[in-house]
Design a protein around this nucleic acid. Sequence first.
DNA 1: AGGTTATGTTCGTTTCGACCACAAACGAAG
DNA 2: CTTCGTTTGTGGTCGAAACGAACATAACCT
Lengths: 402, 402
Amino acid sequence: MNVPTPGSHLTASAGSRNEQTRRHNLSTLLTLVHHHGALSRAELTKLTGLNRSTIGALNTELASAGLVFESAAQESGTVGRPSPMVNPSADIVALAINPDIDAIEVGAVGLGGEVLSRARRATASVPTPSEALEIALELIEDVRSQLASGTTIVGVGVAVPGLVEADSGTVTRAPHLGWEDVAWGEQLSDALGLPVQVGNDAAVAVVAVAVFGAGQGAANLMYLNGSASGIGGGVIAGGTRLVGANGFAGELGHTLVNSEGDACYCGRKGCLETEVNLNRLHAAAEASGIAAADAVAQLAATSSGPFAAEVDREADVLAHGIANLISVFNPEAVVLGGFLGDLYGARQERIRTGVLADAFAPLGDNVRIERAQLGDELLLVGAAELAFGPLLHDPSGWKAKS
Amino acid sequence: MNVPTPGSHLTASAGSRNEQTRRHNLSTLLTLVHHHGALSRAELTKLTGLNRSTIGALNTELASAGLVFESAAQESGTVGRPSPMVNPSADIVALAINPDIDAIEVGAVGLGGEVLSRARRATASVPTPSEALEIALELIEDVRSQLASGTTIVGVGVAVPGLVEADSGTVTRAPHLGWEDVAWGEQLSDALGLPVQVGNDAAVAVVAVAVFGAGQGAANLMYLNGSASGIGGGVIAGGTRLVGANGFAGELGHTLVNSEGDACYCGRKGCLETEVNLNRLHAAAEASGIAAADAVAQLAATSSGPFAAEVDREADVLAHGIANLISVFNPEAVVLGGFLGDLYGARQERIRTGVLADAFAPLGDNVRIERAQLGDELLLVGAAELAFGPLLHDPSGWKAKS
DNA sequence: AGGTTATGTTCGTTTCGACCACAAACGAAG
DNA sequence: CTTCGTTTGTGGTCGAAACGAACATAACCT
């Protein structure tokens, strides 16, 4: 972007000191190898535009901190001296936790984004905050014991299905968990002696999608996830996640799609979440003689009957809702996760043409619609990204404690 | 924001050279005094966090380039040596042009945001691109002749009611003007020998609102403007304008508000723009015996009859639409311009309570709803901001040509 | 062997911060 | 009313941090 678009520099940010340059460059390098995977020094030079000397110095600093390590050059087959690869050190680990209505899941994710180990425990009922905390701590023990010795844990990231106050790590309101104003992050941090970052699950997921998943490389991205608890979402706009004034932006499940629709618990009616809905799918499946538990797996099974009609209807409404949001965000990619991904799998053409027909003229044409990848690792990787955040922002002065 | 929210540093941006630090600091300083008005050197020191020596040096550089000038300290009444004020130099001028369906308007805006002179010519019919170009050039002559000698024109900003390709300055599609794929920016630049930046009128307006208008200080802001040509809008999110993949984000006039509503030219039905509409107001006004031309002025005049009923209906729909968008963007302020501002003036309580009742629980509570200020200067100031962009981004190496 | 691409090291430049001397305001004491 | 101390801030010099340029050298292909 050579020519600045209007409004690209509204806030006069703080002044930049000389040493911040170093921080920024270290951060850039580490973030690059973390998100992109191993890169040669020559590639880093090109990508950053920095001088070879500088890349060398920065690289040495990161390596001596144990954050990256160099390995032999790849067989390139081209002329010229081979350039050694700079790898993210998988010994640098973030823990990821996802407390949900029916289970607690914990994982360990290495720098580079690989899930190194994980553990999950189903709960008989929706866990209370203290139950969840207890189970999480036990699972963390499990997960840590599976890690190779010599790993360093930089912190913990938590993905919670609810509104979260990021600064304090407080769960303001998680309706499906029944939690309200719980300082879960603080409690966890006290118990572990590690820094803990808490985020909304959809916000966490969209980051994972953007960095490691189907949305890789897209600076403008919409993610919609369908689960038993409704439709959550997140937006990446201009390379940054849409946060909003209170961190609550991106409640995409509550955009209007049908003004004659059912009442939503949010107080309105006809929200995307009330019209495109797992319960409705389950009910229609049973009306067609399909067990509710099999509904998602059987989405494409029948072409007639009440179930197929409901699947068609939900596909149409989803397309309508996506088109509506496209005219607001003008994204280059829309990623669908959870049962929305399955719905898209079963009615791909219907949804795709529906979006095209419905979207404001030029906007829909170039949009990529995709199912989420990463599957059940999505939230873990995203939550780990939360925990990696401070390290990625400022790798200077960081030392692996090992 | 000490704790990074998830996704605040997704893109690994380019490396930072040493001299970019200087550029950034000069940019920060100049942008501060341009947006905020005159500031003392001590205040600049506090705001930027830079050292006094550095502020002094930067300031000297900006002053010798003619971009700012120092003046005597303000009478502060406090102890201590007074700190001289750093003022934006109003001799640095940007030209602003707004071609519209019934007139062409041109203004000259000084650094600091003051409109120094302006000229407007009404047209009998919708101007063709070449007619508009001719008139604009004449008006520019007018406007320039009114400027004090010694002013330097840094560039030209154009606000066009239509889709614009920012990089090339091409008007892709301006339905109400009937323009399509017009390289107006290039033509103007060739004729004037000045750099020209072209932007969508709503995008330009939201920048003006955010920087100098009712949205001052809000990092998350929604602007909705109602005109004869429909409803345009723009969004500031996280201190930056929402741009989208192709620069078309923020088509807020085409969000669904009533799925049983009228057909919209965008291909859907029940868009905000088709439901809240100047034509409908005019028709209802005439049914109540009010001349269409007086409708906007008389919005609050009657409390019964078809006109009042229509005003009520549009207010309700607007509130509904705003609430819907609030759940997506979580802004701290919503600014209404054009006839939407008048509508808000006439039905302030109705709209405010409607938004509160309708918005997703905690999001609506803290939103500030306001009418746009700046009036008919809004587009000029915003377009000028476009033209100032390159200078504000990189003041280094810039010299007033006088 | 020659060309190509890359690393490593030294040196110079840019830029900022720290420090010291000094300046300009207020206010209290003589 | 004058004087002196306190407070706040400017101006200039010096040192430190960081990056880029240049040169020598290393590894690979043809």
